[in-house]
């Protein structure tokens, strides 16, 4: 298996970037670099990760200031050329502000910052989730104040039609309903990909569930899926 080249982008206020780096480099033994938001993206990179956190203090709207940084157009070019892009939490918010993913993330319905484990039902028909079973239910941590996915009716219809909804908040048995919706997201959406299938945004944190010491390794297959994809 060839080693895949990941890069984790850092903005002022990013966090979890070290968790992503650690999982890729130390647990999965693939290559990983950090990229500062004023740098270019090296040609060798296969997969970009935009990590969680509070880039630019969440000023104006979450992810909006980061979407104007020097690396922003380079992320868009990278995605347009088919490179794999993962946005986790604040990274998801940045990807919607970059218009690489449709819709946006509103404040949680409860107005509370949510930090807990959530069950997620998986659509495995993507390069990011192929190592899971279709319909599998996993548990991942969430930690956000603005994770309430919103898009207009037509966009939601398109997401459903094109199989772009990859993670949905569910009960442990996979039932998707209001009780299993932590933040008010339309259709319990926790993660979506673009139509082309090379850009994913998700609120849950797979990088925080990759080692047995955390009593949860359900996030590992997420990273293994993308490694598998780039080895085909």
């Amino acid at each position: 298996m060839k080693k895949i080249n990941f890069a984790v982008i850092n903005f002022p206020g990013s966090n979890c970037e070290k968790d992503c780096f650690y999982v890729i480099k130390k647990i999965l033994k693939h290559n990983c670099d950090y990229l500062w938001h004023q740098e270019s993206i090296p040609n060798k990179i296969d997969c970009l990760i935009i990590p969680g956190g509070f880039s630019y203090g969440d000023y104006l709207r979450t992810g909006s200031i980061a979407s104007q940084s020097k690396i922003a157009n380079k992320i868009i070019d990278f995605a347009n050329k088919g490179g794999s892009v993962i946005g986790i939490c604040n990274g998801f918010q940045i990807l919607t502000e970059l218009k690489l993913l449709p819709g946006t993330l509103l404040k949680n319905k409860s107005l509370k910052f949510l930090c807990k484990d959530e069950y997620l039902k998986i659509n495995n028909k993507s390069r990011f989730t192929s190592k899971y079973k279709n319909g599998e239910v996993i548990k991942l941590p969430i930690a956000h104040a603005e994770g309430n996915y919103y898009a207009d009716k037509k966009t939601i219809k398109d997401l459903v039609k094109n199989n772009q909804i990859i993670f949905s908040y569910s009960r442990e048995d996979g039932k998707i309903d209001e009780i299993s919706n932590p933040n008010g997201s339309i259709m319990n959406i926790a993660g979506i990909m673009n139509k082309k299938g090379n850009v994913i945004g998700m609120m849950p944190h797979p990088e925080r569930a990759c080692e047995s010491i955390f009593n949860n390794t359900m996030g590992l297959n997420f990273f293994k899926s993308i490694i598998h994809f780039h080895n085909i």
């Binding site: 104006l60 709207r61 909006s64 200031i65 979407s67 104007q68 919607t96 502000e97 819709g103 946006t104 509103l106 919103y150 898009a151 207009d152």
Partner: peptide, 9 residues
């Protein structure tokens, strides 16, 4: 359009 307003919401 560039930054100040998100016309989705």
């Amino acid at each position: 359009k560039k930054l100040l307003v998100n016309e989705v919401i």
